[in-house]
Design a protein around this nucleic acid. Structure first.
Lengths: 157, 157
DNA sequence: TAATGACAGACTAATTTGGTCTGCGATAAA
DNA sequence: TTTATCGCAGACCAAATTAGTCTGTCATTA
């Protein structure tokens, strides 16, 4: 629960790799799949979705493959997530999945949960695949709550 | 993906209800299940987990039921989540689920994802079930990214 | 024109989640 | 002291989601 799917993991790994490519250089499914030990067919599907979403550019030919279509800074983790898995929502009444929620009329916790969700989406949108491949220090202020909130995270879970 | 389970939804609804009870007043599984149209047996299990986790107090008797064991302010959504579903992690390598990740040695996106996760956990810890039942205005600064970050959320997903 | 690599979708397997069924144990009121 | 109420416990099944497989087509270029 609250977990990213493997397809999203695969997408992020592949995009991170492509973000480090030279201009004009392409990566193909076979080599990415081999590098990360991902089943080739499943990575192929993931790449196709990223392509359809306009995040990457396909070069369908021998010596072809994929390259980023946008600057790495402009590809957010949220965009990747939506491209691969569709709309995101921590509760199904907020992502269009659940058309007939049994608790709809009695539910009095929807509003705060949606706010919680907005925060999560905000973070996902604020984190680009460029930052994925950079050292933690660079991320300060974006994904590290301690600097934003002025206090460290002491997670007691 | 990234979705709360129904068991967690049920737990939050029940806890929110109990948070509004008078001192000494108890709610039993049957009445909560009826109110929210939740299968009684499944809510029973959820309540038992909350009880084992020390979040609520059981009164095993006729006219018995459950009541909060801690002040509503001290029961965080994260505690509820962990009580009902176990450790939370957006990637399985960070919650102990995945013992033999195939990408472990090549993975170069783990660190930023863990930071992302820490933020999510921080929000979940910062939101109490007391706040769940209050009007949105009260939540400003805790779960509303716009006030914390000084800019509104324009979610382009 | 053959080799490479993307495109496409049906299909199966595995895992997680949601829900059911059955019986036992504790307590207080009748 | 019996009995109805309500929590406790765990095996079990069903549905949904996720992961992975199989098979084949289409586009490009060397």
């Amino acid at each position: 629960m609250l977990k990213l799917t493997k397809k999203v993991d695969y997408a992020l790994l592949a995009l991170n790799l492509m973000a480090q490519n030279e201009k004009g250089e392409v990566s193909n499914v076979r080599e990415i799949a081999t590098l990360y030990r991902i089943p080739q067919e499943i990575l192929a599907k993931v790449m196709q979705k990223l392509s359809k979403a306009g995040l990457i550019q396909s070069h369908n030919a021998p010596k072809g493959g994929y390259s980023l279509k946008l600057p790495a800074e402009e590809i957010s983790v949220l965009k990747v997530l939506v491209a691969v898995e569709g709309p995101v929502g921590i509760v199904s009444c907020s992502d269009g999945t659940d058309k007939e929620c049994q608790q709809m009329d009695q539910c009095d916790i929807r509003s705060p949960l949606e706010r919680l969700q907005n925060n999560i989406l905000w973070f996902l949108e604020a984190l680009s695949i460029r930052e994925l491949g950079q050292e933690p220090a660079v991320l300060k202020g974006v994904t590290d709550g301690s600097s934003v909130f002025g206090q460290p995270l002491h997670h007691k879970g």
